[in-house]
Amino acid sequence: MPDIHDPEAPTAIRVVDLVRDYPRPRTSLLQPAPVVRALRGVSLEVKQGERFGIVGESGCGKSTLLRLIAALDRATSGHVIVEDTDITRLPECRLRSLRENLQLVFQDPMSSLDPRMRVRDIIAEPLVVQGHPASGQRVRELLEAVGLSADAGDRYPHQFSGGQRQRISIARALAPRPRILIADEPVSALDVSVRAQVLNLISDLVDELNLTLVFVSHDLSVVKHVCDRVAVMNAGQIVETGYTGDVYAAPQHPYTQRLVSAIPTLQRALSGATTADLLAKGESA
């Protein structure tokens, strides 16, 4: 069962009517180049200490939304408020406290970890960038927190497996002691046995460090396991928000219904569901 959240709890992240248009590369000489409406007016609220999921299929705008929340990109219109500060149009020099309080983990650790840097320098990097001294002690603490041995710090990213690299990027994210952790498809590239390890690690760290978690995935089963509440996105909009258990068991929006019924699960299959049942609209396990 999801934790019942206190509606009075302070807000960690508030997104109001967020729009992001991208210029689209011309594909036809006959048609004018329109914009890609990546976000079409997204609003959501994440409470402090909450585990909030965002689910939707590829291209629906999940990563765009996260980049705006992390101030890595500029909104076309709308607002992002993180811990009472409207960050939407802050200049880079005033984003320093956001950069400490809010950290990101991405799907593919190989492309987000500099291959020429030793793991200890990778982990210490956010501290260096923010002008804090990066002690060897802190790096060892972080390595231990993510289940890597202390000598891992001396090696390079390519010497690790996919799951271990994801542990390294989690250690780096935790280095500045953020209050908010944002994870963009953190387990989507991992094998089942390693996925379970990394999901447990994220869950444990969120508990121990009292983090607010925003967890993005195309896989509603994973989101349901990790998160208390979920927003379902389709084509740049949130079509449904609710407690994950409720959304999964009784989806309200037709798109969510289609999404939920398309998810193959062992339970459904073993009780006789066929591929035709994956297409059955509005039906869930």
Binding site: R258, A262, P264, T275, L278, L279
Partner: peptide, 9 residues
């Protein structure tokens, strides 16, 4: 996942 459902079927 919704495209997968169709292709599997």
């Amino acid at each position: 996942v919704t495209v997968q459902a169709l292709v599997l079927d």
